[in-house]
């Protein structure tokens, strides 16, 4: 073997690590990065998935999209989903995490139970709640009838004004446990000395919570918010399984609308443009929060 030592060293330093990364990189580049580049390309064409040529039409799709009332309606529903679906589970999770953290028996049991809905497939969550809201024998209506609130009972998911909020409640049920577990872990890691100092200074429990605990949780709260925002712009499963965006687009969100355009109507080009809307919103949301978090640290 007459390989020069420096060459051997550079093999070990340069080529070998690349060999370790290569399999993952190939799969990731071909099946994630390349399709993403193609999404941008498709969005500039009027391709229908069948023609051999993809006609370049510039920004025409984007112009259409910004004039598309269904896109705006769907986006509005996403924003409602985000506004209520971000704040509520974080607040509920925070309150419950505080209760458990302040010392209770059966902490692990509560954690196990609160997290159970989170591991459930969202299709199953959708199906469960579909039946909970069933107009005839869904438990909600059964209970309402039994307590004499007959006029309140309705087919919740078929009701134009209520369907979106009914689904949001189901989403909340399936998600708050996630916030709870993350916040409980964060609480267990906070600096107790500050807490004790504040107590000695005469700060009440609410004040301690607000001025001592919450600031220490800020990075985790930021992360959770970013996470929920991305989820909120991409919500699909639970809606598709229950209402498919109906009745009369009352629960349409960007992802269900995009799915219809791309895979029912085969509008690959316009579908890709709608996809870009979701992508940009998700990326802006996550990078804003990552920046905020890094500035905070």
């Amino acid at each position: 073997m007459s390989v020069r030592p420096s060459l051997r060293r550079s093999w070990r330093r340069q080529a070998l690590p690349l060999l370790f990364v290569l399999p993952a990189l190939l799969v990731y580049a071909l099946f994630v990065l390349w399709p993403f580049v193609n999404t941008i390309h498709y969005s500039l064409t009027d391709w229908d998935g069948a023609q051999p040529v993809k006609n370049f039409i510039g920004l025409a799709n984007y112009r259409d999209m910004f004039a598309d009332p269904l896109m705006w309606l769907s986006l509005r529903h996403n924003l409602i989903w985000i506004a209520l679906g971000t704040l509520t589970p974080v607040v509920i999770g925070l309150v419950l995490a505080n209760l458990v953290w302040s010392g209770v028996k059966g902490r692990t049991l509560f954690r196990t139970i609160f997290f159970m809905p989170v591991v459930l497939a969202s299709v199953v969550v959708g199906i469960i709640w579909h039946w909970i809201y069933h107009p005839l024998f869904g438990p909600i209506n059964v209970v309402l009838r039994n307590v004499g609130l007959e006029q309140v009972a309705r087919g919740w998911l078929g009701d134009y004004d209520w369907a979106l909020y009914a689904l949001l409640l189901a989403g909340l049920w399936a998600y708050f446990g996630f916030c709870f577990v993350i916040l409980l872990a964060a609480l267990q890691g906070i600096d107790m000395e500050l807490h004790d100092a504040a107590m000695i200074d005469g700060a009440g429990s609410f004040k301690r919570f607000w001025h001592v605990t919450v600031p220490q949780l800020a990075p985790v709260l930021t992360m959770l918010t970013a996470f929920t925002l991305i989820g909120g712009f991409n919500v699909f499963d639970i809606i598709f399984v229950t209402t498919k965006g109906g009745p009369a687009n009352a629960t349409d969100v960007l992802a269900t609308y995009t799915y219809r355009q791309a895979f029912t109507l085969n509008e690959a080009g316009y579908g890709a443009t709608l996809t870009m809307m979701i992508t940009v919103l998700s990326l802006v949301a996550s990078y804003t929060f990552i920046t905020l978090r890094e500035r905070g640290q």
Binding site: I230, A262, G271, A272, T275, M276, T279, S282
Partner: peptide, 15 residues
């Protein structure tokens, strides 16, 4: 980590 599946699903289908 931040790119949703929606962002790639259409071209991926045709690939």
């Amino acid at each position: 980590l931040t790119l949703p599946f929606t962002s790639i699903m259409i071209p991926l289908y045709y690939t």
